[in-house]
Design a binder for these strands. Structure first.
Lengths: 202, 202
DNA sequence: ATCATGTTTGGCAGTCGCTGCCAAATAGTC
DNA sequence: GACTATTTGGCAGCGACTGCCAAACATGAT
């Protein structure tokens, strides 16, 4: 039965895999198009499935959730974040490490326009925002051990402090991206991030 | 039926209003009981309505959302937060003002046990967390003008900085309350808050 | 007490996201 | 071509939530 554990190294892409990928991309494109055209809440799964040429059932098999249709690589975000931070040199402080992680995640976007589009949808749709914040909270929790080790835990409550530091970094990222969106993508997000950090820790 | 001996909020209430209030309280109590007994996600609206002796339709008329059954006075939180902060003296800095607001909100809980119960549910239920974060984001946005005026806007992007500062305060509150919950309510949340702030801004 | 008034209530049907189940279509293998 | 392993689609159903309509009800006027 269990025949998987396949190393995706080579390219023995079976026809199945290719079809899968194609369908997946078709669904994703359709979803993003409809979302930006008529809004997230106004777009139903039925409509996406219909226009993408698959059944609802199949759509849900590819993407377990309506939110997943937008945040496609959200899980990848978390992974890159963790990887980047753990790769930082041991001498790097928490703030430095977190900054590197944030920068790495921002660099993941395909293009400036795509990033702007996604951020805009995210910041303007309550239901999406909620889901995103939730997922992000999980990232924060995963980051906890990585950051704790970098903190000079003079006194107790190391956990609380690490959590606070991590959440602060995300808070600055939020403020920065919001401002960036309301400026229609003018300037660099990381510059805004640094400004926010300065305002908080200055 | 039960004759509740509650703090008599004597007023020229009509029988209607009293009945309404009673039903409302009955629903709220039932919901909280079931939530803590069997979990939030595992409790259905149908069950709450049945055990509270009202129809689903009526339940939804009192509380528009399942989440509202827990966060009863969430809107009040936002109000107290705003009021407290705007009452701070003009010389008070942003951090001082925000601290006062946080303290005021925490003081709203009826009892330590109730606060612990709610926080525990909140932190352990993904769906609840998401909704709560969303609502809080709206609070933050409301706070924006109040905080902006207290910031020495030397350079531009006052909005971004104010947002970052506000979000940082909430981040510390989060870290503090999480730690408080995992310590089973030992100690003072505000002490943890101060510790988190020190870790962030120190 | 009775009637008219405006409000509250409950039931029913329906939407939307999402899941389990099962039979039919399809890719890969012999 | 036959056989096996997946993938797919359709259907029924759950749970939160809404609109609609008729019955139940408190209240004020008669």
């Amino acid at each position: 039965m269990k025949q998987e554990a396949k190393s995706a190294t080579s390219a023995p892409t079976t026809l199945w895999d290719r079809t899968r990928q194609l369908a997946s991309q078709e669904i994703l494109d359709t979803a993003l198009r409809l979302f930006t055209q008529q809004g997230y809440d106004e777009t139903t799964i039925a409509q996406i499935a219909r226009e993408a040429g698959v059944s609802q059932r199949t759509l849900f098999r590819y993407f377990g959730t309506k939110e997943d249709l937008l945040g496609g690589g959200q899980d990848r975000f978390g992974q890159v974040l963790m990887d980047t931070i753990s790769e930082q040199s041991a001498e790097a402080g928490v703030w430095e490490a977190l900054r590197a992680g944030v920068a790495a995640v921002l660099a993941l976007h395909d293009s400036r326009e795509q990033a702007l589009e996604r951020f805009r949808l995210l910041h303007n749709t309550a239901s999406l925002r909620a889901g995103w914040l939730e997922k992000r909270l999980r990232f924060q929790e995963n980051l906890l051990p990585l950051i704790e080790t970098r903190m000079d835990a003079a006194t107790g409550n190391k956990g609380a402090k690490a959590r606070a530091v991590i959440a602060t970094a995300f808070a600055c990222l939020d403020a920065a991206s919001m401002t960036w969106v309301s400026n229609d993508g003018k300037g660099e997000i990381m510059d805004l991030y640094d400004e926010c950090m300065a305002a908080v820790r200055g």
